[in-house]
Design a binder for these strands. Structure first.
Length: 492
RNA sequence: GGCGGCGUAGCCAAGUGGUAAGGCAGAGGUCUGCAAAACCUCCACCCACCGGUUCAAAUCCGGUCGCCGCCUCCA
């Protein structure tokens, strides 16, 4: 059994074989830090986080590089508007990016290079391209000559002549061919610039990724990722620049994640429906967002909606509630069964099935279905504890917990303390409904008294009253628990 | 116009040649004072439509309809 990855370049799933056995060099395009990141960035980042984690999980030694494009028109413009330096602005949003991504449970990449600190490599690469005759200087700019690179269009499946037809190409007399793109741009007044063989200027958009990836990894990397929109022209140009300079394949596998739509519409500035991660984090637990994202295959589009997130929130509550009960049960029985031993057959092949699933192009939706099975089994063990099978239940529960925890090194969903998670979940739910904890606590207390007096009519009345507000009661041996329904009307 | 993708139950979502995972909702049951939670059972003779290839297709091929993305900054 081996990992198969869908590669955009060949348009098929191919067996994943790193160039250097046992080692993987992966690169993902990061963000331009000029604003708060949105949930589309989260989707992309989570996809590569899962890939990163899974590759490591299978025992490979992975080096993951993700860049920040901190030299860019948008940054310069925003910085000028605010009267701060471009670097300060980038620093601010890189910090915010880390805050968002850390919250979503992402592992930090092994390195996060910035354009501003990669200028020498970018200039060197550009010089190399000029020397090889595939790029040319023109009035302080340097352009890549698209016609000099035979494979141009192979990733985006485009033909140069076709593109020329209806292309909205601005007239630029410095270019020899309209599709030529800038590797280096001559400095304009008031913009950050660096000295170069062609005079002061700054890098074009695409060159940075080639320079960074090759600087960190060498001429050929194993896996390169990014959003679907980057296929053309960004990644196409990366291939042209890199292969044009080295004559070697740039990346073995090109991986692209699908987009996030908001209520079935594309997120865009013009529609004004950009959904920042901070906003989503305010409404939902970050790990709920993570679960939501991995419940759809990374390659497909996903629709962000309240009902979708509510469903993920409810599912997550089920997971954590099960974990809470199971851990309490297992801890309580700790002295009686010392040896963890092997679990029952039902969980023995769990990890193998997980790997089989993830080996199929990182099929996280199926992996999520798989952990659903594990939780069902876990709850079966908890339900069976009253019977005379206490030992078996403890062993069983312990085996499932262990299996889940191993697999969670990849999924990253269950790192929180269940009590803490559920408390916060309850709090957020109450908040959304505008309910006070004090009131809920008091009514629950009133009902406890009524129940002690076997005043069922009053007890039921209180329960209905709370339910009308969205509060579900759960009577147990040790008292009454409550939770807030994760339904659509919660915010209406 | 060119290129690419998608259309699976009320909803979300896997499955890319061997006879439809999983979740939500719904129905019944166990448990419960009654509930809730948890667990069990049921819930797509069928995968947009039409035709073809095949012993066998949701899966391959051709066509039709519908939706979307890229071709310009964009995860």
């Amino acid at each position: 059994m081996s990992l198969r990855v869908y590669d955009t370049l060949t348009a098929e799933k191919r067996e994943f074989q790193p160039l250097i056995p046992g080692k993987v060099r992966m690169y993902a395009c990061g963000v331009t830090p000029y604003d708060r990141s949105h949930i589309g960035h989260a989707r992309s980042a989570i996809a590569y986080d899962i890939i990163y984690r899974y590759l490591k999980f299978t025992g490979l030694e992975v080096t993951f590089v993700r860049n920040f494009t901190d030299v860019d028109d948008k940054i310069i413009q925003r910085a000028n508007e605010r009267g701060v330096s471009a670097m300060d602005l980038a620093d601010e949003f890189i910090k915010a990016y880390h805050e968002d991504m850390d919250a979503l449970g992402l592992l930090r990449p092994d390195s996060e290079p910035r354009v501003s600190t990669t200028i020498p490599q970018i200039i060197a690469l550009t010089e190399r391209l000029v020397e090889r005759g595939v790029a040319y200087a023109s009035e302080g700019d340097v352009y890549f000559a698209v016609q000099k690179f035979e494979g141009y269009g192979k990733l985006g499946k485009r033909d140069l002549d076709d593109m020329m037809a209806g292309a909205r190409v601005e007239v630029n007399t410095r270019k020899r061919h309209p599709m030529d793109f800038a590797l280096w741009k001559a400095a304009k007044p008031g913009e950050p610039s660096w000295e170069s063989p062609w005079g002061p200027g700054r890098p074009g958009w695409h060159i940075e990724c080639s320079a960074m990836a090759m600087h960190a990894h060498g001429e050929t990397i194993d896996l390169h990722g990014g959003g679907q929109d980057l296929i053309f022209p960004h990644h196409e140009n990366e291939i042209a620049q890199s292969e044009g300079a080295t004559g070697q394949p740039f990346a073995q596998y090109w991986v692209h994640n699908g987009f996030v739509n908001i209520d079935n519409e594309k997120m865009s500035k013009s529609l004004g429906n950009i959904f920042p991660i901070v906003e989503a984090r305010r409404l939902y637990e970050p790990l709920v967002i993570r679960l939501f994202m991995i419940s759809t295959h990374y390659h497909n589009p996903i629709n962000y909606s309240d009902s979708g997130l509510d469903e993920a929130a409810a599912r997550m509550a089920y997971f954590y509630e099960s974990l809470r009960k199971a851990r309490a049960f297992v801890d309580q029985q700790v002295q009686e069964s010392a040896e963890p031993s092997s679990g029952p057959d039902s969980v023995a092949d769990f990890e193998a099935r997980f790997r089989e699933t993830m080996d199929d192009d990182f099929n996280t939706p199926r992996a999520v279905a798989l952990i659903g099975e594990a939780f069902k089994l876990l709850n079966e063990h908890l339900n069976a504890r009253k019977a005379k099978q206490l030992q078996a239940s403890v062993h069983g529960a312990r085996a499932v917990l262990a299996a889940l925890s191993r697999v969670d090194r990849v999924l990253g969903l269950f790192g929180e303390n269940p009590e803490t998670y559920l408390d916060r979940h309850r709090l957020k739910g109450a908040e959304r409904r505008g309910l006070s904890l004090e009131w809920i606590g008091r009514r629950v207390g009133d009902r406890l008294v009524a129940r002690a007096e076997k005043n069922w009519a009053l007890a039921d009345e209180i329960r209905d009253e709370l339910l009308a507000s969205g509060v579900l009661l759960m009577d147990g041996a040790s008292g009454t628990d409550w939770m807030v329904q994760d339904t659509r009307e919660a915010r209406e």
